[in-house]
Write a protein that binds this DNA or RNA. Structure first.
Length: 498
RNA sequence: GGGCCAGUAGCUCAGUGGUAGAGCAGGGGACUUUUAAUCCUCGUGUCGAAGGUUCGAUCCCUUCCUGGCUCACCA
């Protein structure tokens, strides 16, 4: 697909230190809630490193490991309260809260996977519950259970936490559906089974070769490296703290699983300007899907990755966004239209690229007007941004109906509108229109601000707007004439009545 | 307390071992033309502090100060 891969310098440096492979680049995310832009950063870090390795001619497998078998831990906002009865159950076995997918896990995973496709991400998406059910983790699970004492010791030494007496690296699923809270009593290595006591003390048997349970998170991390043959995995800073999951997994990998610790990149978090770090539980969530509404996939890559993912990033999709887009497009296109102008055009003509092209040509953006397909996309980005993210000052829309605000126009302004309506001619360009609007105001002895205010009020319901000449010229002349005549007559008549 | 990141012009941030940069804001000027107008023009700031390495450091090392985030399974 994309022959010239985007490889930032930091990714190149990481790749240099990773050896000759073959490589398995892994990124893992739990679909316990919305998979947001912060999660995307992890995937993009992995992608960039995978690309850097590929560019060096190395063999690379790029894997997205979705932790679908993980237990539901808490009820996120927007999830029905009665879901608390599912706490402790695997996400892959909890129903979709909105009923639109096969499971809770799929409900959140599926849209993210769709986003990855739209970004042309060449990644294998694996679901952990399927891996367990297919026996992919059988060997490492057996190994873990056999080394229960060593694993427990590492956990206690590294995390400083006293593990329960009956701690086991394996969490069998009880008949109730719970994958936490059981006590493993006996290992039957020949049958891939464990005998355990469930939360009520009943003895049951679980077949770990068929996904009837899972490894505990910290052990699973190290086991996963071995099973997948991972050579690189990025981690957010919450995992890389002293005593954190990477600390324990590193030792488990080396001492128990005899597997070399994969390369690592520690990335900082993304914040939303003015709102703080993303958090599903606080309702501060920015979805990648939303971001693709206002920018192309490659722009999203650069925005999320930032200059260096090891540094925190404050995402500004408001006032700062046009500048970002201009910088991005300056690299991609020979003659980019300033995004702010595109926003004006989009709001003036709606989604019709033909009309937008006319407007852009008048403004001197010949290049941008030539490719209608591309223009249609850009207009959509601009319009979506204007509706959802733009500061108020950017936003306007030509009213379908006569705005109520015209009631505030005085007699002079109405006279002005009538005069303009009488002078407007088809085919006038932006400059000619600007002259007409201005000279008419002067002739009637109106201040430009007053005159232009009337015009904006009549068309937009606001006192100000985009540069009037090209704006009015971009509209249908008949529509403008009709609107102006209507408003001037209507309000004048109203005053006479009074 | 541990970890990561940051501390450069009013603000947001680039940046390089060899005389400090951009955008915005602000000052001045131009334009008979509203608009977050447009065009031209203006930036000596202890590059957080102190040491060290070096012919030379804002950039490398050490220590310290300040701020942000993070720490047992929400990147």
């Amino acid at each position: 697909m994309s022959s010239n891969l985007f490889i930032p310098p930091w990714a190149e440096q990481v790749a240099e230190q990773l050896g000759t492979g073959p490589h398995v680049v892994v990124t893992g995310i739990s679909p316990s809630g919305n998979i947001h832009a912060g999660n995307l950063r992890e995937v993009l870090v992995a992608e960039a490193v995978a690309n850097a390795l590929k560019a060096r001619g190395l063999e690379v497998r790029f894997v997205f490991h979705a932790d679908t078998i993980d237990p539901l831990r808490k009820i996120a906002p927007g999830i029905p309260a009665d879901y608390k009865s599912y706490i402790g159950h695997s996400l892959s076995r909890v129903p979709d809260p909105e009923g639109c997918h096969d499971s809770y896990a799929e409900h959140f995973l599926s849209p993210f996977e769709e986003t990855l496709k739209r970004m042309e991400m060449h990644v294998e998406v694996l679901r952990s519950h399927e891996l367990y059910e297919d026996g992919f983790y059988t060997e490492v699970t057996r190994e873990a259970i056999e080394h229960t004492e060593a694993l427990r010791r590492i956990l206690q030494e590294v995390s400083g936490r006293e593990m329960p007496k009956h701690w086991s690296p394996y969490l069998p699923r009880a008949g109730s559906g719970q994958v936490v809270g059981a006590r493993v009593l006996e290992h039957l290595p020949g049958e891939n089974k464990v005998v355990f006591a469930d939360e009520d003390g009943w003895e049951e048997v679980a077949d770990y070769g068929r996904g009837e349970g899972k490894l505990g998170w910290r052990v699973e991390l190290a086991a996963r490296w071995k099973a997948l043959g991972a050579t690189f995995e990025p981690f957010g800073k919450d995992h890389t703290s002293r005593g954190g999951s990477t600390d324990t997994a590193d030792r488990m990998a080396e001492e128990v699983f005899r597997y070399p610790v994969p390369g690592r990149y520690e990335y900082e978090w993304i914040q939303i300007k003015g709102k703080g770090a993303m958090s599903s539980s606080k309702g501060i969530v920015l979805l990648p899907q939303e971001m693709l509404e206002i920018m192309p996939p490659d722009a999203l890559r650069r925005l999320i990755l930032g200059r260096d993912p090891a540094r925190a990033l404050d995402l500004d999709l408001g006032a700062g966004f046009p500048r970002f887009m201009d910088e991005y497009r300056a690299e991609v296109e020979p003659y980019p239209v300033p995004f702010a102008h595109l926003v004006t055009v989009a709001q003036t003509v709606g989604g019709e690229p033909e009309k937008a092209a006319v407007m852009l040509r008048r403004g001197g953006y010949e290049e941008a007007a030539s490719d209608l397909a591309e223009l249609r996309r850009d207009l959509a980005y601009a319009r979506n941004w204007a509706e959802k993210w733009a500061p108020e000052s950017y936003r306007f829309g030509v009213r379908e109906e006569v705005p109520l605000e015209v009631a505030n126009l005085d007699a002079e302004q109405r006279t002005y509108l009538a005069a303009v309506a009488g002078r407007l001619e088809d085919g006038m360009d932006g400059e000619a229109t600007q002259d007409l609007l201005y000279s008419t105001a002067v002739e009637l002895g109106l201040k430009p601000k007053t005159a232009f205010g009337a015009l904006y009020t009549t068309l937009l319901g606001k006192k100000s707007g985009p540069k009037a000449g090209s704006f009015v010229a971009g509209l249908d002349t008949d529509f403008v004439r009709e609107r102006f005549r209507h408003v001037s007559g209507l309000t004048t008549a109203g005053e006479v009545e009074d």
